[in-house]
Structures are given as structure tokens and as C-alpha cells.
Design a protein around this nucleic acid. Structure first.
Length: 907
RNA sequence: GGGCGAAUAGCUCAGUUGGUUAGAGCACCUCGCUUACACCGAGGGGGUCAGGGGUUCGAGUCCCUUUUCGCCCACCA
């Protein structure tokens, strides 16, 4: 068979880059990603439960990173698997407008052009961001397609689409009308750079080495009290000094008056049990306007809530001489002034937690402001119950505890953002400040007119909603909710939500709360959490570290299949993974290995007539297996092994052990199909009768074709490309992607497993000796087999043995019982003794040592088993099959022991 | 201050109802351009499964404990 027969179609090495994009377009154009098409073709069963995933929407202006790559790999695997199993399968793609993140990106770009959003004005700015969105959407979509995502692009959504915006407004109004959304003036986390409130979750605390300032509060009635702070500028907003009511050191001060440094404002000294006498000086400065704990104290004691800061963290008029200074400049200046005034006690270094803005890393300031909040506790209760009852299952399960812990201690959610990019809060204010929640200004106007009895001027709230408010509706808003669409009826609740464990609170928890609230149903049945992808040193990948690998670069170099297989098999759910180039390279090699195995099979098929399976239908067409009596031992073995792998990989995928299933497929294909079966098949292919060769071809093709199905969800491109090159399958636009998952069969053949394993053992033993004795690879050698009860097996498989170990068939003897020829090496495998008369190579002394080593090893094992079987507890309590196995093992070892001992004595 | 995870071969990791002599890939050593593949093949070396205790006939796997690393949550000035 010349290589050129195949070469035009199948080059010697698999070239991912040459096939992937075209193949993706072909799948997509054929509509295979759409459940309607799957049903129309009859490939899936419309009466079966749909399999649905909502893709976590990436930020529209972001670039895809490996976090997306792992998300996409897992979701595509699940979608492809379920489609093959026959469930109508829908994977809904889309993007997120990503409020703060996107606004920041665009603001920075404008800055570089010397423009600012303030001078542009709201409308112009938003229109600019939409332009960005249009540009970047195409880019991110192209990236997702490059990864091979078999999602239904006709259902692609964007969180600011009309339909989704309507879902947001509807939800807001409903919650507002139920009293679950309210407006309140509280201390919020304020980012002075974003000039917006952010939620608790959007604050990232970092340990920093800061300063701990201790100073004196002068007491009006005489004396002073020492207090400490990490933020001296907040002294300007103090409304009290607090001590513990039982603190003997300070009890006498309660009720007296202290003077704020520099400002000389008079404040009360109060007693409050919150103060820890053991911490610091035991006296606490109370700043209700700039510290959450102090805020609570302030409420308890009716203290003035003084706000000393503007929205950009410069100080305001309350700060007196420090007005207009930035917070940190004010800190330095105030402290210097206090030092001059003799109020400073000491400054120490101290490690403490400082909150930073998740999006721009600016230090967050607790600030009093009027914001909109979601009352979360009533939403959290059913959300907890949904997981507790098992209606929603989290994988891996340990994250349920994380979920409960957060949900049970949940605090109200600040949802208003002082931004322009996002869903504007559907609230209009009347002249007297009365609020009207409405879908649009006309509706608000109607409400207002009815309320006031006349038309009035209304003003819409200028703020927008937290991005996560809209993504919290994603599983159902993308399906048309609040409209009762066909999609909603058919595909909701979705099946599985797949994402990284780092956004359980941001997203997963909120979807469950809002899903239950809005639709009365859980948004999904399963939550599958993958780990974070890290670099080779285990660091988080980030642009600033410069260690971020771009998935598109990796795909360009190694192919999409290699990347996704690495991500899928590189770890276990919920655990982080260090991704190394070497692993991707290894998996690129795996794709190439399968490719070449396929080339071999196809070359051999081309000159022969292949028989297709009789019971085949359009989605389940494959090759017919030969009749059982035409099967050789290797045939029976590989079919049996395939059966096991088919069962195992199915079981593993069904139990979410996706990586393990992939690893088993890898081992099966490489180590068993390629390394053993193909090599064994060559014997019958080249030396067998035409009928034997034909039967071998059928088995080669059958196992390959079915293995491609199993592997397809893991490596869609190479498997489909090979499949399209298999003879006689491609009619009617058939495709592997819509083929059926191999069904359970009855190919298990324990006898074949055992017999072939015996052959493998013999082959390995002979190869080992050849290698150890440095027999030239090409040299054919003589051998004698004392085969005992395995006489028939060895005689029957002699051509195979000879081929795999290069025996000279004219110099092979087999008998049930044979003595050793002169000067030969002895190998004892289970029940078979092999003598290799390696003329001129055998050193008797070396052979004795080798045999003794082998014997020692066997004795060690025998001792272990004898100890086990001699233990009454073991015999009484171990399951019978375990005992049987040990006994069989013992018997084999004894035989081998005997064989080797005999040989040693005759040597 | 709580909680979670990790600790298995030089490196990266598997090992899911406790049961053969604990596996893979990469790296390493020795051979080999054998008509699918050098992105390959054959052979080989390498592990007291972090330490200690316990349960069990039997523990990498279950329980307790210690150590080291990582992460999450939490209002300590």
C-alpha cells in the first residue's frame, strides 16, 4: 500500500490549523448546534428531556482567557455528549455588558484620546460604548467559535438586548412592588475612581503593611485620652470617643467632652460595649460617616453622621482647613499639624486589611450615600432550601457548604451604581421625591398623573443597576422571560450551570435567588464548578504578571483539540490546575497518534470492500462485525476492551468525572488500540488468508469508528475529520457530531482478556530479555515454550508471538512440558516457561543472578499472599472474589517459583 | 477568628461505595529511521502515598491529630 493513496486526503501529520475553522463552519451551517435541526433530522428524540446550558456570558469587551477556555471545553463536552445520547441539546451563548468593567475600559481609551466621559455627556458616552460593543462582540464571538463551541448562535443574547432589558425592568418593578427593593441612605463601599457605590462582593481585601497612628484627644474638662487609627483623616469626621462601659481606666471619662484635634469641635465621650478594652489603647474614635462599625455605634447613640468626603475622595467643607485635599494628602497634612500641636503619641507599622475596588484596584472608602438595595434574606431562604433538598446539586459537593455559609449570613445587596453603562433604574421621582417604578417614562407619567391628580415633571433615577442583577436573570431572560415563549416552556429550567468556583456568590447564588423568585422554579439542576487555571508556578494568570497564556495562541500552535483535552483531563472538578505547555504538546501528539492510526486503518480499508452494519440508521451507521467464529484472539480482546471503555467512559461522564473518562479513552486508544491491537492486526492483515484479513479490517474499522464517537466530545475536530475520511460513511451529510453515542453491547469477553494478557506477558518477557541481552533488533531468535495447559494458546498465537518478538519460526518448539536447551535464558511467566537459546550471548553466571533476582521477587510476593491467606480474619471476612483472586495468584506464583528453581538447579 | 482545599515518582497530576506488587504524561537511561505515526516504537530506572495515632482481616482511600502551602469568608479601631 503506497502512502500516496491516502496522502492527498490525509497528510502524514495531523494539521489542526488546516481543518478546524472550515469544519466549524460546516457544522454550524448544517445547523447541528440547533436543537430544532437535531429534531428535524431525527437525531435526537423530542420526547426526551432537553439538555440545556446557559453559557456564562463573557464581558463583551474582554478577550477570552483560559478561564473561558476551560468553561467552554467543559460545556461543549457536555453538550456534544448529550446531543449524541439523543437529548435535544441547547447551549445558549451570549455576552455581558459588564457595567463597571466596560465603562472603565472605554473611559481609559477615551483618556488616551484626551477625552472624558463627563465632558461628552451621558448620551454621547453611551453611544460610544455601544460602538465598542459592536466592534468587540464580533471579536469575542470569533474567539468562541475558534474554540469549537457547539452553541446555538441563533439564540445568542446580550444583557442589554431589548428582551433582556425588559426582564431586568420587570424584575426590578416586581421586587420593588413587593418591598424587596428599597432605597436607603447607608454606608456603602465607595470607589472614588469609579465614583460609584459597589457591593460588598466587589471589594477585595488585601493585607498591606500600613501605619497605626496613636494620638491624643484633649478632654475639655481636663486631661486627655489616647486613641488609635489607621486612617487619621477620618478624625475630622469623628462624632465621639467611645470606651467600654466597664473599663475601669476610662469609666470616669464617660459623659465628658473631647475636642477634635485642629478643628476643636466638641464631641461626646460615650460608653459602648462594642469597644474592646484589650485592643489598642482601649479607647475608640467613632466616625459614623466613614466606618461601618462606627456607623452602628453612631446609630445606637444618636451621634451626628458627618461626611467629610466628596465622591472623588477629596475632603469637603466639613474638613475645615483640609477641604479640597485628597484623602491621603489630608492624612499627611493633618498628622503633621497634629504633631506640631503636640497631639501625636506614636506611629507604628502594622499589617492590616485594606479594601480595594475589584475593577480598578483603588482603595475603597466607606461613604454615606443614598442607594438602592435588594432585601436578600427572603430570597435566600428558598435558595438555600433548593440546594438542601437536592433539587439543585452542586458538584463537587463540598461547595454546598460554602454556599450555605454565605447564604445564611447574606446581607442586603447594593444594586445601584453611579455609572452610565447599564440598565438604568426604572424609577422616576415626582416633585416631592415620591418614587414611581415603571417600564418607561409614559407609564411613570400615568402613575404620577393619577397620584398627583395632574401632570407633573418627573425625573428618572440617573443610576444604573449592578451588572450582576441582569446576569442573575440569565438562564431565563435568554429564553424569553418574562414572555411565556416556547423556548422558556421547553428549555427552562436549564440542566446544568457550569462555571468557576470563584463566582458562586456573584452569580450562582443570585441566579438561584432570582430564578426562584421570578419563575418559581430553580434555574438549573446541577452546578458544576471547575477550578482556576494557573500558570506553571501556580500563580493566577494575569495581564499585569505577564504570565497569561492566550488560548488563541495555544490553539494556533497546538490545535483546539489539544488545548481542550489538556483542560479537560488536567485536573478534577473544583480543584485548580497548573497548565503546562508540555501537556498541551503531549495532547497534540495524541491527536496525531489517532490521526495516524486512522491513516493506517483507512489505507487498509481502501483496497477492500467493507461491510456496513445492518441495523444502522442514519445516525448510527458503522461497520459490521465479523461473525464470532471469524474473530481472532486479538479481535476478541480489543472488542472486549472497547466494551469496557465504552461502559466506563459513559459511567464516568454521567457521574461528572469528565477528566477520568478522558484519561481512560487516551489510554485505550494509545496503549491498547495502537500499541497492541494494530500491531497484532498486521499479522493477519499481511500474512493471513484474504478472509482473515477482511475480518481484521472490519474489526479495525469498527473499533476506530466507535472510539471516535467516544472521543468526539473531548476532541471534536480531529475525530470528525477522521470520521469524514472513513470509507462509505459519508452520505446524506452524515457527521460524527450528530452520530449516536455507542450503546451498550455484549462484547465483553473475559476469556479473551485473560488469554491476550497472557500473550502480552510472554511478549514483554521476551522483549525484555532481548533488550537486556542486547540482541540486535533485527535478529530472529529461537525459542522453546514449555506451555503446560496453555499449549493450545501458544501454538495458536505463534504467528502473533513470532511477529511481536521476532522469533525464527523454524527454530521454535512448543510442548506441554519441555526441558531447557543448552545455554539458554529461562523466562517463567504464568504457567509458561520460555527458553531462549541465545547462542553466544548467555553468560551462565549472569543468568544465575538474573534468575535468583526473579526468584527473590516471587518469594516476596508469595510471603505476602501466604500471610494474607494464613490470616483467619481475612479468610473469614474478605469477600470470596478477593480470596479467589489471591488464591489464583498464589498458585501462579508457586508454579513460576517452581519453574525458576528447577532451572536454577540445572544451570 | 471561622471554613475549605492541597501534600502520591525529579516535575505536573490521576487514583469516587477500603481489596492484585500504587498509575499516567513529561523528564531521565539503553536500544531502534520495523511498509500508521520520530508529534514514533521497544526496554529500563525512579515512590516508607507529608508526620504520628486509630478503626479494619485489609488503609493512598475512613476517623483523630500535627506540620507546611494555598484559597474563601469575617466590622476589630
Amino acid at each position: 500500500m503506497s502512502d500516496t493513496t491516502v496522502a492527498p486526503l490525509m497528510p502524514k501529520a495531523y494539521e489542526a490549523q488546516a481543518v478546524e475553522e472550515e469544519l466549524y463552519a460546516w457544522w454550524e451551517n448544517n445547523g447541528y448546534f440547533k436543537p430544532e435541526k437535531q429534531e428535524e433530522l431525527g437525531q435526537v428524540d423530542p420526547t426526551k428531556k432537553s439538555f440545556v446550558i446557559s453559557m456564562p456570558p463573557p464581558n463583551v469587551t474582554g478577550a477570552l482567557h483560559l478561564g473561558h477556555a476551560i468553561t467552554n471545553s467543559v460545556e461543549d463536552l457536555l453538550t456534544r455528549y448529550h446531543r449524541m445520547v439523543g437529548h435535544p441539546s441547547l447551549w445558549v451563548p451570549g455576552t455581558d455588558h459588564a457595567g463597571i468593567a466596560t465603562q472603565n475600559v472605554v473611559e481609559r481609551a477615551l483618556e488616551r484620546q484626551g477625552r472624558t466621559r463627563k465632558e461628552m455627556g451621558r448620551e454621547a458616552f453611551i453611544s460610544e460604548v455601544w460602538d465598542w460593543k459592536d466592534e468587540y462582540l464580533g471579536r469575542i464571538t470569533a474567539q468562541q467559535k475558534r474554540m469549537g463551541n457547539s452553541c446555538d448562535w441563533s439564540r445568542e443574547r446580550f444583557t442589554l438586548d431589548d428582551g433582556l432589558s425588559n426582564a431586568v425592568i420587570e424584575t426590578f418593578i416586581n421586587l420593588y412592588n413587593e418591598g424587596l427593593i428599597y432605597r436607603a441612605n447607608y454606608l456603602v463601599n465607595w470607589c472614588p475612581r469609579c465614583t460609584s457605590a459597589i457591593s460588598d462582593l466587589e471589594v477585595e481585601y488585601e493585607e498591606v503593611l500600613g501605619k497605626f497612628y496613636t494620638f491624643r484627644y484633649t478632654i475639655k474638662e481636663g486631661g486627655f485620652v489616647e486613641v488609635s487609627t489607621t486612617r487619621p483623616e477620618t478624625i475630622l469626621g469623628d462624632s465621639a470617643v467611645a470606651v467600654h462601659p466597664d473599663d475601669e481606666r476610662y469609666q470616669h471619662l464617660i459623659g465628658k467632652t473631647a475636642l477634635v484635634p485642629i478643628l476643636n469641635r466638641e464631641i461626646a465621650i460615650i460608653g459602648d460595649a462594642y469597644v474592646d478594652p484589650a485592643f489598642g489603647t482601649g479607647a475608640l474614635k467613632v466616625t459614623p460617616g466613614h466606618d461601618p462599625n462606627d456607623y452602628e455605634i453612631g446609630k445606637r447613640h444618636n451621634l451626628p453622621m458627618i461626611n467629610i468626603m466628596n465622591r472623588d475622595a477629596t475632603l469637603n467643607a466639613e474638613a475645615g482647613p483640609y477641604a479640597h485635599l485628597d484623602r491621603f494628602d489630608a492624612r499627611a497634612k493633618l498628622w503633621a499639624d497634629m504633631e506640631a500641636a503636640g497631639l501625636v503619641v506614636r506611629v507604628e507599622e502594622r499589617v492590616h486589611q485594606v479594601g480595594h475596588c475589584q475593577r480598578c484596584h483603588t482603595i475603597v472608602e466607606p461613604l454615606l450615600s443614598e442607594q438602592w438595595w435588594v432585601k436578600t434574606q427572603p430570597l435566600a431562604e428558598p435558595a438555600i432550601e433548593a440546594v438542601r433538598s437536592g433539587e439543585i446539586q452542586i458538584i463537587p459537593q463540598r461547595f454546598e457548604r460554602v454556599y450555605y455559609n454565605w447564604m445564611e449570613n447574606i446581607r442586603d445587596w447594593c444594586i445601584s451604581r453611579q455609572l452610565w453603562w447599564g440598565h438604568r433604574i426604572p424609577i422616576w421621582y415626582g416633585p416631592d421625591g415620591k418614587t414611581f417604578a415603571a417600564h418607561n417614562s409614559n407609564e411613570a407619567q400615568d402613575q404620577a398623573t393619577a397620584h398627583y391628580g395632574k401632570a407633573v415633571n418627573l425625573e428618572q433615577d440617573p443610576d444604573v443597576l449592578d451588572t450582576w442583577f441582569s446576569s442573575g436573570l440569565w438562564p431565563f431572560s435568554t429564553l424569553g422571560w418574562p414572555e411565556q415563549t416556547e423556548d422558556l416552556a421547553k428549555y427552562y429550567p436549564t440542566t446544568v450551570l457550569e462555571t468557576g468556583y470563584d463566582i458562586i456568590f456573584f452569580w450562582v447564588a443570585r441566579m438561584i435567588m432570582l430564578g426562584l423568585k421570578c419563575t418559581g422554579e430553580v434555574p438549573f439542576r446541577y452546578v458544576y464548578l471547575h477550578g482556576l487555571v494557573r500558570d506553571e508556578q501556580g500563580r493566577k494568570m494575569s495581564k499585569s504578571l505577564g504570565n497569561a497564556l492566550d488560548p488563541l495562541d495555544l490553539i494556533a500552535e497546538y490545535g483546539s483539540d489539544a488545548l481542550r483535552f489538556s483542560l479537560l483531563t488536567g485536573g478534577t472538578p473544583g480543584n485548580d490546575m497548573k497548565l503546562s505547555i508540555q501537556r498541551i504538546e503531549g495532547n497534540r501528539n495524541f491527536a496525531n497518534k489517532i490521526w495516524n492510526a486512522a491513516r493506517f486503518v483507512i489505507m487498509n480499508l481502501q483496497t477492500r470492500e467493507l461491510v456496513l452494519a445492518e441495523d444502522a440508521d442514519r445516525f448510527n451507521i458503522s461497520y459490521q462485525l465479523p461473525a464470532p467464529d471469524e474473530l481472532s484472539l486479538p479481535d476478541r480482546w480489543i472488542l472486549s476492551r472497547f466494551q469496557t471503555v465504552q461502559n466506563e467512559s459513559t459511567r464516568l461522564i454521567e457521574t461528572w468525572q469528565l477528566g477520568e473518562a478522558g484519561r481512560q479513552l487516551y489510554e485505550f486508544l494509545w496503549n491498547e488500540y495502537c500499541d497492541w491491537y494494530i500491531e497484532a492486526a498486521k499479522v493477519r492483515l499481511y500474512e493471513g488468508t484474504p478472509a482473515e484479513a477482511a475480518a481484521t479490517c472490519q474489526v479495525l474499522a469498527y473499533v476506530l469508528e466507535n472510539s471516535l464517537r467516544l472521543l468526539h466530545p473531548y476532541m471534536p475536530y480531529v475525530t470528525e475529520t477522521i470520521w469524514q475520511n472513513l470509507p462509505d460513511l459519508q452520505v446524506d451529510g452524515r457527521a460524527l457530531i450528530i452520530s449516536r453515542w455507542p450503546h451498550a453491547n455484549t462484547l465483553d469477553d473475559p476469556q479473551a482478556d485473560e488469554a491476550f494478557e497472557r500473550i502480552q506477558e510472554v511478549v514483554r518477557a521476551i522483549r525484555n530479555v532481548r533488550s537486556e541481552y542486547a540482541v540486535e533488533p533485527g535478529r530472529r531468535i529461537a525459542a522453546s515454550f514449555s506451555a503446560g495447559e496453555h499449549f493450545n494458546l501458544i501454538e495458536g498465537e505463534l504467528p502473533l508471538l513470532a511477529s511481536l518478538t521476532r522469533l525464527d519460526l523454524t527454530q521454535v518448539t512448543i510442548a506441554p512440558d519441555l526441558g531447557p536447551p543448552d545455554k539458554s535464558v529461562t523466562l517463567a511467566t504464568a504457567g509458561i516457561t520460555i527458553y531462549l537459546p541465545l547462542a553466544g550471548l548467555v553468560d551462565l553466571e549472569a543468568e544465575r543472578i538474573r534468575l535468583q533476582k526473579e526468584i527473590d521477587n516471587i518469594v516476596k510476593q508469595l510471603n505476602r499472599i501466604e500471610g494474607l491467606l494464613g490470616n483467619p480474619g481475612f479468610v473469614a471476612k474478605a469477600p470470596p472474589e478477593v480470596i479467589d483472586r489471591e488464591q489464583a495468584k498464589q498458585e501462579e506464583l508457586r508454579t513460576r517459583h517452581q519453574q525458576l528453581l528447577e532451572r536454577l538447579t540445572t544451570l
